[in-house]
Design a protein around this nucleic acid. Structure first.
Lengths: 191, 191, 191, 191
DNA sequence: TATGAATGAGGGTTCATTCAT
DNA sequence: GATGAATGAACCCTCATTCAT
């Protein structure tokens, strides 16, 4: 009697290999070998490499975001900008501890593909970040003409700069960078 | 007597195809067919697809940046934040008019590769943006602890958000977005 | 229902082509075309041209040697030097009847590669020639300080001269040559 | 004013590269680069890689053989079998000191090609080994029915076994092997 | 469901040879 | 004689995808 379904085994193996070798260098053969299923079985559950990747990105991202919000709910932070910064820091620290995840989310990944996935992610019902942001704005009486544009700018800004810092594209440590990051986020929330 | 060297013909064809089909989907066969040279000729001038791409990115990026600075010198804008915004707007408008260029700079392009190129680009002697920024800071008596971190944040912020807007990943027009963009840049230059 | 496996078909086609065109001039495309399988199928069973060749050399050589020893066991020859000469003659006659086999064992074959294969061949458990030689030495009370050196000299001498004679490099027929060959072998077995 | 003709420079470069990299892995580009002449120039003097190789084999072989005979004439050895063994040993020692020459004469060299060259070599007017052998036979009153067959057997025997020993195909040093070699040569000269 | 042998288009790359200058 | 840019056929090899079992 098997513990995991073949579908699950394929997801687990793909995640492991994408992190290690990146998307492009991982072949379907690699995945099925690792999952110990036949090649044809892959095609019973997924169309191609990219659909398995898409599923993984959504799953893992949700996991990280929602973990951050759970941790936040156990704190007593009540100012909104500090809450937002708490979430941002949680995610940065998470990625810094497991930077190979970037191999799988970005390296060898066309930006445009990623972006499609990102939109799907944000729109996903299970993701509470959008709601949390809107609720925070309201509860704290922050006046923003179009708050969704501010959220968009924050996400893009954090992603782009943190990616550069974590992958050491710029010689700046995460801890050195954080004060600058926090300062800009705070300013973005001013009107 | 031929007008263009074979090397130039290869660069022109590659540029055209990278814009149209993206890097990954363009094969060397495609490039030599379009340039009407033999396959072996490609290897006379370039090692592989990536070296021709690198040359094109540097060439085209320099072109855009330096055009922006030239145009700026023909204006009478004297406040530094306005100068910076002028340059940013010039680049955004340029890309908006020729958005296929993003296919070639980003689509199907691993982020990390691009980033190597970006560093090379910034360090390039011919590129005046770094100097222009440092001089502006000084001349306008703007006090920034580490101005290179501010420049880094501005570039990343502009690139990431404008890419999303131009590629219509978010339903927001460039003109709608510009005031938000300008406002954030100004705030980043405050101390 | 097919009679032969694709692997066998590849071996048969390779054998045919190596004999006809030699190893270097036979391409993998030639082999798969002849075997009527797809190119990828080749790589399912063999790493490259050389691994299929190696397998064929071992197979064919074992066949010839062991046939010689079988035939010998059906005779009443009991003096050792005559037994050895019987085996040598059997092999020479075999090759003379199918001289194209030399194209495949030697022509276009770097000597050193062949030599690696030769060592593997001699060490092969299924090959009885070494045992037969050592047993013969002992049974016939032939005193040789280092019998393995004598075996080495006989094999090299027979191979080199017979190759030249069979390939008509020297204008001397096999039958004319045999008495000289036999005479030298006999002398090598003297102490 | 150039010291060496381009033709000579090509021969020298080819010799150097054949010894180092072997025939197959040396390209015409390698040769002309090393000789510092243009690619087209190669074709003014040689048809292909193999014709330059052929010329080198003949030239180098003659050099070695004739050096051996010169050295012999400075000794007082007067028994014929000892003279022959002197020549054989000279050649073996020469090759042992410069074993890379085998890369160029044998490795990557189809045996059959070599054999054509060998015949040409033996027949070459400048080569005194044949004459020396026949004269020695006569002067020493050695009765051989067909002396050219004995010469053939000696050359093949020496070449094949020494090649194996020098290239370490068999774990036997040259010095260990020499007594066996000499003994067989002597026996071949007996009637 | 599950298998895995078989497919074959298509990729990158090499290099002997030619020929206009 | 001398050049070297240009050629393009030929090669090896990969791998997503199919399909009979």
């Amino acid at each position: 009697m098997e513990e995991k379904s073949k579908r699950e085994r394929l997801l687990i193996s793909a995640y492991k290999l994408f992190k290690t070798k990146g998307l492009n260098k991982t072949t379907i053969q690699d995945i099925v070998d690792d999952a110990k299923v036949a090649k044809g079985t892959f095609y019973l559950y997924f169309n191609d490499k990219y659909s398995i990747q898409e599923e993984l990105i959504i799953e893992k991202s949700k996991e990280i975001f929602n973990n951050a919000l759970d941790k936040l709910s156990n704190t007593k932070i009540d100012s909104f900008d500090k809450q937002l910064i708490f979430v941002v820091d949680y995610i940065i620290d998470y990625i810094q501890n497991e930077p190979e995840i970037l191999n799988f989310i970005t390296k060898d990944l066309s930006l445009s593909l990623y972006q499609d996935k990102f939109t799907k992610l944000i729109e996903n019902d299970d993701l509470k970040i959008y709601d949390m942001f809107m609720k925070g704005i309201k509860d704290n009486n922050i006046k923003l003409k179009r708050p969704e544009i501010t959220l968009f700018m924050i996400i893009e800004f954090v992603s782009a700069t943190c990616f550069s810092v974590i992958t050491k594209r710029i010689s700046l440590s995460v801890e050195e960078y954080k004060p600058y990051l926090h300062s800009v986020i705070k300013k973005m929330l001013e009107n």
